[in-house]
Design a protein around this nucleic acid. Structure first.
Lengths: 364, 364
DNA sequence: AATTATTTGTGCGTATGTATC
DNA sequence: AGATACATACGCACAAATAAT
């Protein structure tokens, strides 16, 4: 009854055909393989093929013509501006996104645009769904914070489709490595990681644990900066003192990693955390274990969220100008929509990190 | 193959069912005869019945529910569905809105809708602009938190136009008095104000200052509850102990009001604040003046925001289930879009307030 | 101009899966 | 647990439109 992924046969066939259309494999005007051919190649009954095609026909992807065949529809590119701009983020509730969206909104509303908000829960599958949705709608532009930006982007074809339809898009906060040539607004996370590590080193720390997220741009970049600072100071990079986690692990892995280090007697005098959330959670954990911050261990965060300020031990962290991020992304998108090339751009794309020193680190 | 009129069997069956629905013979919510029953009464195969029903389902006349039956849908929309739903709030950044929007999103995304997000900065002029904008676009529905809901709504005509276009809308968080008969999801703010005042009275307070916002539903309602509690306890209502502020004053008026009371030697032993923000600001102010909370003055908030918990003196306040608010509003809108009347509604519209007792009040 | 092969459209029968009551 | 109802899937037959022979 169901295929290997648990989907109905007609459904997976439908999706396969849709993918071929969206990727340009089947171009507008092309004739789709006949029902009998499809039934043979996909090893399903003709009835199943018809069910799949009927969906595509209802969604406007194909037209069946009696006696001739089934044909791929040409997408009617409407030149009329909709004044809608899509904004896709991983989350909307989390601590930085409301302000990011606020920044985007403040710029775009002034220009008469409306925002279509979507979020992916940091799942690439969901991101693909959002993009498909946007392709069926009619938006003038797109601002996207990619999901798991350090994992290979499996829906490259959808971005290609955006290019074909000449819908400008801007990456914000992170970017897939394959897309580095596309417009984007990022923080200089390498420098951010570097600043934190250098600050800890300058305070006399020698055994600095690093906790990084493995599946996004920011995690990789901050790690890079951390390594650079260690190298400059002549401190050997110790893989045993680095904890990598991913989205699924974020609640458990960092604490487990530290627990394991303590058990294996791997000594450390500082912990450089991926962000404030991790740092705060870790501080609570260490407190329970009777380890004092910053007396015994210094800790740093990232993002300068409300947590950093209101935490029992105010957190040394990196400023994250959230509204500004959104504003810059919106401005860059406006430039793209106006057809302004990269050479003439006046929008800053790499935001300088700034160290915010509070009380979570002391001199050794 | 064809019936007496030369139409396909599935087609004539489909038309017959459609006629029954349009004539009111089959009413919204009614269960259509089962596929097997139809197949018998119309002397066609079940497959043919399914083909007819699938057309009606695609056109939005009926919905099939696995294991239950096929049900008649309400109003049939002639205008094509855009799958866009507008959400208009006063702010997007402020402490409760991200979670409200999250709640709305979680319900609507599951149903395949996209959200067009707009905010008014709590300005009615801006709200009118947003509504105009939405009328030019094509949305399937609207969730709106009205701006200054206690000020007379000057753009009544825009809501009338929504009615004319049969675009369903749901008020959330507040509502214009003129629209009380329209669908809405509110907190029982009268009861909330009552609970707080009663709590303070039960603790032995006799001179309770109230600070309320004059230009929205919540402020008026909470004030009403406050008055009710005083009356029940036989405490005379003293207008001199009530401070009213509006959106523009919110940063200054509450503090000024208290300052003035102190100068005029109007004594008080408790302050019931419009929300947590005001309460926190006031606590800082009183601390600067050397007045101790709760030793000298008890204070209450409203909304149970992060501020309430992390404040130096944890704040006694009223719980505000933010995601739930959004979810209920979204569900109510879905009901309206499906043409389900108020009588058959299953969505809760008045959320019970719940007192959260912390350390900002003590017995006198 | 008629025939034939191909392709979509209509229709029935059967079997099994799965959600709901 | 069993009955009911919708969902998926296969197979077959024939109709009607089209295109090529």
């Amino acid at each position: 009854m169901t295929d290997e992924k648990g989907r109905a046969k007609y459904y997976s066939l439908m999706e396969d055909l849709k993918k071929n259309i969206l990727s340009g494999n089947i171009k507008p005007g092309d004739r789709i393989a006949s029902e009998n051919q499809l039934s043979e190649t996909y090893h399903v009954s003709r009835h199943t093929v018809r069910k799949a095609l009927s969906i595509l026909e209802n969604e406007g992807f194909v037209v069946a013509e009696h006696g001739r065949g089934t044909f791929c529809m040409g997408r009617i590119k409407q030149n009329t501006k909709t004044n809608n701009i899509a904004v896709i983020t991983t989350y909307i509730n989390d601590y930085i996104f409301p302000r990011l969206i606020q920044g985007i909104d403040s710029v775009l509303t002034k220009e008469g645009y409306s925002i279509i908000l979507k979020n992916t829960g940091n799942l690439q599958k969901m991101e693909a769904k959002c993009l498909e949705d946007i392709l069926t709608k009619n938006v003038d532009g797109l601002i996207i914070e990619p999901s798991r930006s350090e994992v290979y982007c499996k829906h490259y074809n959808l971005y290609r489709m955006l290019d074909d339809l000449e819908i400008p898009y801007v990456f914000v906060q992170g970017i897939y490595p394959q897309f580095m040539n596309k417009p984007h607004v990022l923080m200089d996370d390498v420098k951010g990681g570097y600043l934190l590590a250098k600050y800890l080193i300058d305070l006399g720390h020698k055994e600095i644990v690093g906790i990084f997220k493995v599946d996004d741009y920011q995690g990789k970049a901050r790690h890079k900066g951390y390594v650079k600072a260690l190298q400059e100071a002549g401190i050997a990079y110790d893989p045993d003192r680095v904890i990598w986690f991913q989205t699924e692990d974020k609640e458990t892995k960092p604490l487990l990693g530290i627990k394991q280090m303590l058990r294996m007697n791997i000594h450390f005098d500082a912990i450089l955390c991926y962000n404030d959330q991790i740092a705060c959670k870790l501080m609570l954990y260490l407190k329970r274990l009777g380890i004092q911050v910053p007396q015994e261990v210094s800790i740093t965060g990232y993002d300068n969220s409300v947590l950093a300020e209101s935490s029992p031990v105010p957190l040394t962290t990196i400023a994250h100008p959230k509204e500004r991020f959104g504003e810059l992304a919106a401005k860059l998108l406006l430039e793209k929509m106006a057809g302004i090339g990269d050479e003439d751009s006046k929008v800053e794309r790499l935001i300088e990190p700034e160290l915010i020193i509070r009380q979570s680190c002391i001199k050794r």
